[in-house]
């Protein structure tokens, strides 16, 4: 295998990791801080993609659509919190799973009713639609490079917000001892609402930037939700830093595994056997990784300080 191919695979892995991070960041805060299982987090990724599609159709400008989609995703997140999730915080996990699963089904069907069942697509903005010549035969899309930097920027921003701002401090404190924070006169309800709204907005943002790379279709968030849960478990529930490291790890292993598993296996076994087993093994890799990490570090790679989850 050539060096360029390996480099491209790594770039793709990092880019996938960034996307996963945007989704997992919100999920890990909601799960870690509120102890709330939100299966509908993946569907907010889908909502973001559909919003982007809708606003691009409406305004014709990708950048304007990004801004509008972010606002709309935030509002939808807050509305969901106000009308549904707020009433579930004190209920059991099973109730939360049932209710949020219902939201998945509802929103998936709603997307189908509004936009039809067919797969829609969105072109990357004109400015970023080119590709960079890496070798004679190989080009890398500019848009994908940009998503890496956007992911990094969001990660840095989140890290500072959680580590050095007052709200961030309250979030960290709320994650460990919500009763104490509440007793100190902090409006914990409002704090939860902020966390939830930002989480929904991040998932929506991931959907927006993923829309031009992948495609927009009902149910597109369902698979990525499972991977996002793997990420937050590997990283440590409630930990932004953990989610970042785990997202990169999962992104890289998944992408590299897909290409290399068959290649590595065919060095040992005969090619037809390898091509049968390779793809199956590649799609299991991240779960094997999760199991292995849980054996050695049951609380994840970088658990949130004092977390008792």
């Amino acid at each position: 295998m050539s060096m360029t191919l390996f480099l491209i695979l790594c770039l793709n892995g990092v880019q996938y990791g960034m996307l996963l991070f945007l989704i997992a960041a919100g999920l890990t805060l909601v799960f870690g801080v509120m102890g709330f299982i939100n299966l509908a987090h993946g569907v907010q990724y889908m909502v973001g993609a559909y919003l982007a599609f809708f606003f691009v159709q409406l305004t014709g400008s990708f950048f304007l659509a990004v801004v509008l989609s972010l606002g709309a995703a935030l509002i939808i997140g807050l509305l969901l919190e106000y009308f549904i999730f707020r009433h579930l915080y004190t209920r059991t996990h099973l109730d939360q799973v049932l209710a949020t699963f219902g939201i998945i089904i509802f929103l998936n069907e709603l997307a189908k009713v509004l936009f039809g069942p067919a797969t829609l697509s969105l072109s990357p903005p004109e400015l970023l639609s080119g590709s960079i010549q890496l070798t004679e035969t190989l080009r890398y899309p500019v848009y994908r490079l940009v998503t890496i930097f956007i992911g990094l920027a969001v990660a840095v921003g989140l890290f500072f917000a959680v580590s050095y701002t007052r709200v961030g401090m309250l979030i960290r404190a709320g994650a460990t001892t919500p009763e104490m924070v509440s007793a100190l006169g902090v409006n914990i309800q409002q704090l939860f609402m902020i966390v939830f709204g930002v989480g929904a907005m991040l998932a929506g943002f991931a959907g927006v930037i993923a829309a031009p790379i992948f495609a927009v279709e009902p149910g597109m968030g369902d698979n990525i939700l499972i991977v996002a849960f793997v990420v937050i478990i590997i990283g440590g529930v409630g930990s932004i830093g953990g989610a970042f490291v785990a997202a990169l790890l999962v992104g890289l292993i998944d992408t590299l595994g897909r290409s290399l598993a068959t290649m590595v296996l065919s060095a040992v076994f005969n090619p037809s056997f390898a091509s049968q087993i390779g793809p199956a093994l590649a799609s299991m890799l991240i779960y094997i990784l999760m199991a292995a990490i849980l054996v050695f570090r049951p609380k994840g790679l970088l658990p949130a300080k004092g977390a008792n989850a």
Binding site: I213, R258, S283
Partner: peptide, 21 residues
């Protein structure tokens, strides 16, 4: 080469990189 991807595959970039090389 013969590449088998999972059903419902999202990101073909790894496969496209293999294809182009």
């Amino acid at each position: 080469d013969e590449v088998l991807t999972p059903l419902g595959h999202q990101d073909f970039s790894a496969e496209l990189a293999r294809m182009s090389t």
